[in-house]
């Protein structure tokens, strides 16, 4: 099944081309140029990975990361950055980013990280389902 991706970047031309290249690789990509719009999308949709630019007007990448994690703590986020400082990278990982890639990014590396993100998300979903079933079994006292 195709990976479902949300791509967030204020550079619309970057969004367009990235989406086309990722679609060509069989991914299902949604793009948004505004972090606020991304937060709305995440409330109603489930994504295998979210790719976020670290520096955007309106709300920076770290703020977006925090807000996305608040909506869905299991969401797998890959940060993209034009000028990564070590501190920003560490902060992003501490806030729960899965990985960080520097722009211009190699699409093959990004695709690998997306596959990893999907696998991680599936493990989390399976674990949650297992916990739910255990809870139901123990509460019913069968």
């Amino acid at each position: 099944m195709a990976e479902k991706i949300l791509l967030i970047d204020d550079e619309t031309e970057f969004l367009e081309i990235m989406a086309e290249r990722m679609n060509n690789r069989g991914m299902d990509v949604t793009t948004v140029a505004s972090p606020k719009e991304a937060l709305k999308k995440v409330q109603s949709e489930n994504y295998d990975a979210i790719i976020v630019d670290l520096m955007m007007p309106e709300m920076d990448g770290l703020q977006t990361l925090k807000a996305l994690k608040q909506i869905n703590p299991d969401v797998q986020i890959i940060m993209l950055t034009g000028h990564a400082t070590v501190e920003k990278g560490i902060e992003a990982m501490k806030l729960g980013a899965m990985d960080l890639l520097e722009k211009p990014a190699d699409l093959n590396s990004l695709s690998e990280k997306i596959h990893k993100a999907k696998a991680r998300k599936m493990i989390l979903v399976e674990k949650k389902t297992e916990d739910k079933i255990k809870n139901i079994i123990s509460s019913k006292g069968w």
């Binding site: 970057f14 081309i17 034009g82 000028h83 722009k103 211009p104 990014a105």
Partner: peptide, 14 residues
């Protein structure tokens, strides 16, 4: 640097 990286990223994707 960020602006240049953005231009390079779009060039790279094209």
């Amino acid at each position: 640097a960020h602006e240049i990286k953005n231009a390079l990223a779009i060039t790279n994707e094209n």
